[in-house]
Design a binder for these strands. Structure first.
Lengths: 215, 215
DNA sequence: GCAAATTAATGATTTATTCAAG
DNA sequence: CTTGAATAAATCATTAATTTGC
């Protein structure tokens, strides 16, 4: 099937780079509004839908985890411990929003006070594919993305979950200039709109944080 | 937590009965439009959302399967074969729509020609909870529900998948007269609107039917 | 009888697995 | 082989049954 009417999303290098950056930054299970913003943002670089973002994080998380598992199974025990601690660190960084909210923090985190200028602002380096892209205005807004990760999708939809069902796919895949390659001029990434979320992202604060999962 | 502000859906006996009836009828993985219709229909008997229907079928299917597995593990081999054949029969009934469409039928079904007045019109009998309900006008429309079951949710959303993310849950659980008990007078079930689907339900006909799963 | 305690069901989420495009 | 898409299995969490001690 030709790329223009491809059935499945084919991320551009820029989209991929940004997604990986976010993943490195600690995003694992973006909630609905996060997905929406990410999608809006990435759509500048090519056709993309929310479900693509959703699936990407799901798959990437799962595959990183499995990659790590494979790796761990042939690693000496010492290094395993190290890895686990790194993981924990990431996890706690993710929880910062939680810690600073007026909700009572989860017990396990009560006893910790972590540096909030976490390492997600200085991730390990960008991919090569579009490395020349001016990096990276959008990073400044990354912290906005750091809302609760244990927010579930379904819960987020609320009564509007049904919206997704209101229409069926009848519009076939529309024009999609070139699959898997940059089809727009590279440009400094624009900021996410700095909306104050108006409590929209604060649901699910009663969930059990132990169910959060970060690789 | 009192029922009125319960966090989770609590099906009324009528809703449950209808869902079970549909399940017995062969519905396993309703697609978006099916879910919408089912939801609209069931909402007559109490508060309900699409996701509840979605989850109900998912859970029910899984738990019936696991129930059967447990049962099979202590059954003589002969009866196992019988069970499997029953399952297959159901499966084929589900595929009838497929067979009659102008899409090329799945290979595995090519070789079979089955009675289309399938047994889903005469299911094994209704539950006792609301058995006095005039039974059952809505059954006449059940065939409408027999669209492709292998249609995936995500695919159905299409470009509107994002709709589900547009708003976050801010409306808390609204008034819900009485949990788990009939809060409206029983009445003959109304027909589903007999819409001709207009091709809206015909997506995903290219999917591999082997992935269909019917218990 | 009737709450508190325990257990069983089941609604809701997440994780693992699988399919299939490219 | 990689990875987007989708489904199934496992898990969590809340509600209903039920048991238990009074």
């Amino acid at each position: 099937m030709s790329p223009s009417n491809s059935t499945r999303w084919c991320p551009t290098p820029e989209q991929l780079m940004i997604l990986e950056e976010m993943y490195r930054g600690g995003i694992r299970t973006p909630n609905a509004s996060q997905i929406q913003r990410i999608t809006a943002h990435l759509s500048f670089y090519g056709k993309i839908e929310g479900k693509n973002v959703f699936y990407w994080f799901q798959n990437h998380k799962a595959r990183e985890r499995q990659k790590l598992r494979r790796k761990l199974s042939k690693q000496p025990y010492q290094q395993q411990l190290l890895q686990e601690q790194l993981c924990l660190h990431r996890c706690h960084n993710q929880e910062n929003k939680f810690l600073s909210s007026n909700e009572s923090p989860p017990p396990a985190l009560h006893q910790l006070s972590l540096d909030k200028s976490a390492d997600y602002l200085h991730p390990g380096g960008v991919g090569s594919a579009a490395a020349h892209m001016t990096s990276c205005t959008w990073k400044r807004d990354l912290p906005n993305m750091y809302e609760l990760q244990n927010t579930s999708m379904m819960r987020s939809y609320g009564d509007d979950w049904m919206m997704m069902m209101l229409k069926m796919r009848d519009a076939g895949p529309t024009h999609y200039p070139s699959c898997c390659s940059s089809n727009r001029p590279l440009k400094t990434l624009e900021l996410f709109p700095i909306t104050t979320q108006n409590g929209k992202d604060h649901q699910a604060t009663t969930s059990n944080p132990s169910r959060n999962s970060y690789l």
